[in-house]
Design a protein around this nucleic acid. Structure first.
Lengths: 337, 337
DNA sequence: TTGAAAGCGCTAACAC
DNA sequence: GTGTTAGCGCTTTCAA
């Protein structure tokens, strides 16, 4: 069967304690002995049992990573970036997908906690309803919010400045289309902090007169399907705006697809913008003007904060806010190529 | 601190064994006692320590899921489907991304094994080079190959019939373009079983005269970038074929993007086909003709086989081969809309 | 520098 | 039907 520490100890003629010290490099051991131990371990193909180690050490070296919708390419990319940084800190990452469902989210977070994770990176489904379950985990181990945050949990936050992102888009639109263009906002219901922030940023800009929009925002979900449906509604009800500002790229891609299908030219007849810069934003036609989130930095900062908290760094919770970047592409370009 | 079984036992005035039996519903316990136990556990907020349980039971209820490139939307979708089915069997899923690197793949598989996973679903990076590391895991716990397989491991396989998929594409092309159209094949180097199978299927069809192609296949990687580059090469060297058959959707999307950029009309000047039916295949313009893999069934069958092996089902290894479906869209449609 | 032994939290014999 | 206890494999005092 699988060799245990005991087997290595017997084979090298030392105690299990010594073997443990050698293999973990945790205390100096006589060089000759150490070599014997290593050789024996090698020959036996010994591998530490991480369950046992975790139980004894009272830490698992696992961190949890919970995303609201793994199917959304933005979160898929964020997961990858976060995993990569977490691995750097020599951690196993348990990824969980909440499938946009707070009940499922609560279950998976509980599960992670039951495995004795050392910390958690969380992009919560709901700003309001994810907090309760998150705080149960948060009371035992450090939690860092990534991209999105939730109420009722005392945790560090790493995110971008959503308002700056929306401003970048609107300024760009003004540049391309002239001042105070007529726009519509198609986004997701502000159940999560990101949707809410983008919504508020857009509202604010309309109040400030930077864009003209007398209509209510069209709020659905962060999906291609919602983008398609919203575009259909736009086409059904009266004249098109100069530009459709979308809450994320998926919505924008759906809008562009439906508009194009119906013979409306993007950007000639109407400009469209996205948010997040997912991979397909540069593959669609027209390529999509959007706002890039600095995924790698987000992941890096979140990992670093989490690690700091795990090793017990004290202090009040911090919020790190990174700047997004405008990626101007063809979906807002007025001159056709 | 975190309540242990002991705490629940004391609070309800019974032994830890009884608490364990109640909470795991593993043996009949007097109803009154059982209720007392449950109440106490509830009040204390007791949660079983899964590390301890795993150590004692010698099984973790964790299964590993290893994919070659989590960034590829096909595998992202496969991961989601597999996770969902695995959860059904009440398992925690540890997802690992091999980042198309057999060395990294070996490390992550080892790590999974060290956590005492009960089984593993594996889509290996390399047909030849992933086998060694996989068999190390495979000797301890059941492994089921999903989508792709590797040599040197005695494990069940769940996959689609790649050749049938290529045949669907070529038949469709003959329908649209006329018999024995002039084609080129752009795919990935046959390092993995899927690339190899598609390559062989295409070769066979050329030998059979179902398509005409005197040129060597253009083999790079399953990425958009390779598709772009291959298209550039195609444009640089002589006349375009009637159709470009791509090894997967990412390549096809890259080919379409570059062709379109250079003023070549798809499908009017040249038809393009993909494989896998990733989400964006129906968003690109033109929408992409491709072959759909039955993701959900693949995941379902693989999970079922794995569960069967985990509970000790004996018998020779099995291979389940599912049929793919042609999804005809605009990238091969000769009449323009 | 090394070893003996306790014990992490849990389950499963085994005894009553 | 319930309790006692050994021990899963490991790390870590504590003594030597």
């Amino acid at each position: 069967m699988k060799p245990r520490l005991q087997d290595v100890a017997e084979r090298s003629g030392v105690s299990v304690a010594t073997v443990s010290r050698v293999l973990n490099d945790t205390q100096h051991v006589d060089v000759a002995l150490a070599r014997r131990v290593r050789v024996a371990a090698e020959q036996l193909g010994y591998r530490a049992n991480l369950l046992a180690r975790g139980l004894r050490r009272q830490r698992s070296d696992i961190v949890g990573l919970v995303v609201p919708q793994a199917g959304n390419p933005f979160f898929a990319a964020l997961m990858q970036a976060a995993s990569r940084h977490l691995q750097t800190h020599d951690r196993t990452v348990l990824v969980a997908d909440a499938e946009d469902d707070t009940a499922l989210e609560a279950r998976v977070m509980t599960r992670l906690a039951d495995y004795g994770i050392d910390g958690m990176l969380l992009a919560p489904v709901s700003e309001r309803d994810s907090g309760a379950a998150a705080s149960v985990v948060g009371e035992r181990v450090p939690v860092v919010f990534l991209d999105r945050a939730a109420h009722g949990v005392d945790a560090d936050v790493v995110r971008i400045d959503q308002r700056a992102g929306i401003d970048l888009v609107l300024d760009h639109l003004a540049d391309e289309l002239g001042p105070a263009p007529q726009t519509r906002f198609v986004s997701a219901s502000p159940l999560d902090s990101v949707a809410r922030a983008r919504d508020e940023a857009y509202r604010r800009a309309t109040r400030d007169g930077r864009v003209r929009d007398e209509q209510p925002a069209m709020l659905g979900a962060f999906t291609v399907d919602w983008g398609r449906e919203a575009a259909a509604q736009l086409l059904a009800h009266g004249p098109l705006p100069h530009a459709v500002v979308c809450g994320n790229d998926l919505i924008a891609l759906g809008v562009v697809a439906t508009l194009t299908d119906r013979g409306v030219s993007v950007p000639h007849d109407v400009a469209v913008t996205g948010f997040d810069d997912v991979g397909f934003a540069q593959l669609s036609s027209p390529t999509l003007t959007t706002v890039r989130q600095p995924l790698d930095e987000l992941a890096e900062r979140a990992s670093a904060l989490l690690e700091a908290r795990i090793v017990g760094e004290p202090g009040p919770t911090r919020e790190e806010v990174l700047p997004p970047t405008l990626i101007a592409r063809d979906s807002t370009r007025r001159r056709r190529r």
